[in-house]
Design a protein around this nucleic acid. Structure first.
Ligand SMILES: [Mn+2]
Ligand SMILES: [Mn+2]
Ligand SMILES: [Mn+2]
Ligand SMILES: [Mn+2]
Lengths: 219, 219
DNA sequence: AATTATTTTTAGACAAACCTAAATTATTTT
DNA sequence: AAAATAATTTAGGTTTGTCTAAAAATAATT
């Protein structure tokens, strides 16, 4: 059951789009893969014949059990390589995605497992996304958008909603990284800015845009 | 000037086949790439139009200046990844080639340079082959096949003529690695076996087959 | 319920990389 | 120098993944 790079990219795109409810539509996939709907239909037929998806014409698509298994392994590789690039090769946050997009298609099972061991089995990638283990299991964590957190609640930054250089730049300047603990002090309804305190430091104010890009867990 | 994976594999194969003299023939290439001569001819036309090779129908092929430059960068990536796999991920000698065959096609310039730095700019890959630097220069070393070395000459193992698990296994058993220094004591013409001494250890005898797989430099 | 708009699929083509079989060209052998 | 052999190229197809344009199905409006 060896997949081509293109098939893998489709499978992964379906995986990300189908998160939770509903079927993934042809147009959604075309947009996500930067291709045309007609090409997607062709590929959906192919993936159906390989039993990787459940697909009814005009009704959208979901991954089959086998498809989901394959998707998890691609996501595993993608996130392990991102972790490697940031932690070992000193890449920035914002630079790793495209490279990992290529590295994720290297199929050696042994390579993945040895890389995982070398990295000491990380649980999260540099953007805070969970890394599936070799069985496809990953840590689930209930996350909240910082903009929805009530004042006086202690939280820890776990994930970012964007991987842009701009966001990385801003967070660096504010000395915030994934894992940083903070408390929401108050919120200003005029501009939806949020005042937060990071331990031992004077309170700072962050913009609505920034608060919407930060996902935290309760502690 | 972006090359496909297939184009890169052809360029690299030509590079390895053309070492020193003569043009590379269509049949040589077909054998090396595990394809048919007709397919090679198609690709040679394509590479000619991209100015990567000098090719006259029926007369064989050589890399152009640009082609050689590209080939050196692919070889650089291949050997850096092999070094990474052995030194960091604990792969065996014999296991790295196929994986590196895939990794070498990842095109990020930044990735190569950062990997090189992470590995501390190694000069040789795990098989003793020189790694081109970012300008395409590599260490040249006059090597001799151990079977041709005269008695009482001190030498150092620099390269192996095979990457098989079998050779690795035998060398491990005899405690020989790349870098091991040895002296040829005498040679037996009955079976072309060679008696060598490795410092502080009792003399050992190696077979003709093994002596032909070992390449050494004089010290 | 009928019309219009949107989404999706089908039909027919194309480029990349490969193939087999046949035609050419080059090299050996007689 | 002619004939036989070997190497190489051409001709014509296939598969994979893509595309545009047209047809069909679904969804949204009136
Ligand atoms: Mn990808
Ligand atoms: Mn990520
Ligand atoms: Mn390769
Ligand atoms: Mn090597």
């Amino acid at each position: 059951m060896n997949l081509t790079k293109t098939e893998e990219n489709y499978i992964k795109a379906i995986f990300h789009l189908q998160q939770s409810e509903g079927n993934v539509t042809t147009n959604q996939l075309a947009a996500s893969i930067l291709t045309k709907p007609a090409s997607v239909t062709d590929m959906l037929k192919k993936l159906t014949s390989k039993n990787l998806i459940d697909y009814e014409p005009y009704q959208g698509v979901r991954l089959s059990k086998e498809g989901k298994k394959q998707a998890l392994m691609i996501v595993r590789k993608h996130r392990l390589w991102e972790y490697f690039l940031v932690e070992k090769l000193q890449f920035g946050w914002d630079e790793v995605h495209e490279v990992a997009e290529e590295l994720e298609h290297i199929s050696s099972k042994k390579l993945v497992e040895k890389l995982d061991a070398f990295l000491e089995h990380p649980k999260f990638d540099p953007h805070g996304d969970p890394i599936p283990d070799s069985n496809g299991n990953m840590v689930y964590m209930r996350l909240y958008n910082l903009k929805d957190v009530k004042p006086h609640v202690l939280v820890e930054l776990c994930n970012v909603g964007s991987q842009s250089a701009e966001l990385l730049d801003l967070l660096k300047h504010k000395n915030i990284v994934i894992g940083t603990r903070m408390e929401v002090l108050r919120k200003f309804s005029f501009d939806n800015s949020v005042e937060i305190s990071i331990k031992n430091k004077p309170a700072i104010t962050i913009s609505q845009q920034l608060s919407e890009a930060l996902f935290v867990k309760l502690i």
